[in-house]
Structure formats: structure tokens, C-alpha cells
């Protein structure tokens, strides 16, 4: 489904991604792990088409289509979803309105009729319960005054509503307490399906106890330096990133943020 070949990207003239190679098939869950500053968010943003990042080399294709030729919104409509590490607020725009606009943009792209307000309300209420968000959040401004955990649940709710082909979850576990982690993980597991791929970006392995990945990759210094199965994550938990010869100040005093 997703194929990344020798991807180089830089931000403000500084090269961050230095030759990423990755193949993700439909139905698979891949975990991208790595210390802070290794380029995980950069990779996520580049896949979603953030223009703040410049792609200086390499290829990305989604189901054979060249992603690098597509605008952010086109990629989204083709099925790429990014759950943000730091979701931004849009004051005064209700979550409900925002989500319905998004869902209708996707529907229009697929040649389907738009969903009306009443129908969408019903659907959104169901999905909000799935991530344990009070439906009252639907009426509030997008992420406006949400706690860290509420923002993360809101991101997963959006993924569940938009039903993407490729979901990229950037540190969706950070800042969550044990209960919230369970809710979010259940949400992500509900997303798992044969025709969908999930890319889970995380610093810590604890999320992977709830969402068992098919493949684990370690990103360091802008390159994938090691790939393996589930056991690689466990090994990292036991031995830290130092085991792979990577310096990581954060792992020493790991608190789960």
C-alpha cells in the first residue's frame, strides 16, 4: 500500500530524514520507534504533505500513486490520515461542523452524496462514545480548551469517522493516563482492518502492549537503523535505546511524559 524509497527531507535547510525506506501492506500495523528528535514527526508530516517540510529526494507512493505530486487535501481524500502529536485549536469552529465538513469533502471526492446534519450528528455521537468523549465535546470549538488526553481521543474519533486507508498516529499515547491509554488503544484496535494500514509513531513501547504491531522499526538520526517484529519493541523496553548505540537523554528519566 505505502512504499517509501530513499526519502530525504529537510526543514529550514537542515536535513532531518536521510534516506528512509519502508514498505507497508494493507492490513498491517507498523510501529516506528525512536528517541526524541530522531525525525518521527517529520516523517509523519512529510507523508501528510506539510509544506513546511521540503522533500529533497526519494519517492513515496500510495497504492502505486505518486504522493509527492499531491496536495495535502488530495492525499487526505485518497485516504491518508494523520493523528497529530500536538493537535491545534480552531476557536469558534465546532468540532461537529469541522468533522462534517471533512467527512463531506471525502464523500464528494468519492462521488457520494453529502451527509446531512441530523444523520451526521447521530453518527458522531456513536463514535464519540467509542472513545469515551462526552458528546458535548462535539459542540465545542475544535480542540478548544481540551486537555491533552481529550485532544488525543478527539484525534482517534476523527480517524474512526473518516475511515482512512492509511492512519498515521503520531505519539497518540503520550500524555495519557492508564485508563485513557486503554480507551485510545481500543479505538486504534477498532481501526485495524484488512484493507487499512496503521503507522504508529511512538517513543515508548507501552502502547504496543495494547496494540500489537506486525513490524517494528527503529528510527535514529533520520534513518531506519533496525527493523524487526514485536520482540524488537520488548527488547528496546528492556535494554533502552543505548543498546543500539543511540544516545537518548529521555530514556534515562522516562516518565511517560
Amino acid at each position: 500500500m505505502l512504499s517509501i524509497k530513499n526519502l530525504h527531507a529537510s526543514v529550514e535547510g537542515k536535513e532531518i530524514l536521510k534516506g528512509i525506506n519502508l514498505e507497508v501492506k494493507a492490513g498491517e500495523v507498523h510501529a516506528i520507534m525512536g528517541p526524541n528528535g530522531s525525525g518521527k514527526s517529520t516523517l509523519s508530516q512529510v507523508l501528510a504533505g506539510n509544506e513546511a517540510y521540503e522533500v529533497t529526494g526519494g519517492e513515496i507512493t500510495l497504492n502505486g500513486k505518486n504522493l509527492l505530486e499531491q496536495e495535502t487535501e488530495e492525499r487526505a481524500r485518497e485516504g491518508i490520515f494523520l493523528a497529530f502529536q500536538y493537535p491545534v485549536e480552531i476557536p469558534g469552529v465546532s468540532n461537529l461542523q469541522f468533522l462534517r465538513t471533512a467527512v463531506n469533502a471525502m464523500r464528494t471526492h468519492r462521488g457520494e452524496p453529502e451527509i446531512n446534519a441530523a444523520e451526521f450528528m447521530k453518527l458522531a455521537k456513536e463514535v464519540s462514545k467509542q472513545v469515551d468523549l462526552d458528546p458535548a465535546f462535539l459542540k465545542r470549538g475544535v480542540n478548544e480548551g481540551f486537555s491533552g488526553g481529550e485532544k488525543k481521543r478527539n484525534e482517534i474519533m476523527q480517524a474512526l469517522l473518516l475511515q482512512p486507508k492509511l492512519a498515521i498516529l503520531d505519539e497518540t499515547d503520550s500524555g495519557l493516563d492508564i485508563d485513557a491509554l486503554k480507551v485510545v488503544s481500543d479505538g486504534v484496535n477498532a481501526l485495524r482492518s484488512e484493507d487499512r494500514a496503521i503507522l504508529m509513531v511512538t517513543h515508548y513501547q507501552r502502547l504496543l502492549n495494547h496494540i500489537v504491531p506486525d513490524h517494528v522499526h527503529v528510527l535514529a538520526g533520520g534513518r531506519i537503523i533496525k527493523s524487526g517484529g514485536r520482540e524488537l519493541a520488548l527488547e528496546l523496553e528492556e535494554r533502552g535505546y543505548g543498546w543500539l548505540g543511540i544516545r537518548d537523554e529521555d530514556t534515562a528519566n522516562e516518565t511517560g511524559q
Binding site: 487535501e73 480552531i90 471533512a102 469533502a105 475544535v142
Partner: peptide, 9 residues
């Protein structure tokens, strides 16, 4: 970027 990432023009 958030809006566009959700498919909105």
C-alpha cells in the same frame, strides 16, 4: 494544515 489534512479545501 489540520483542515487540509482532513480533506478540506
Amino acid at each position: 494544515f489540520l483542515c487540509r489534512q482532513r480533506g478540506i479545501d
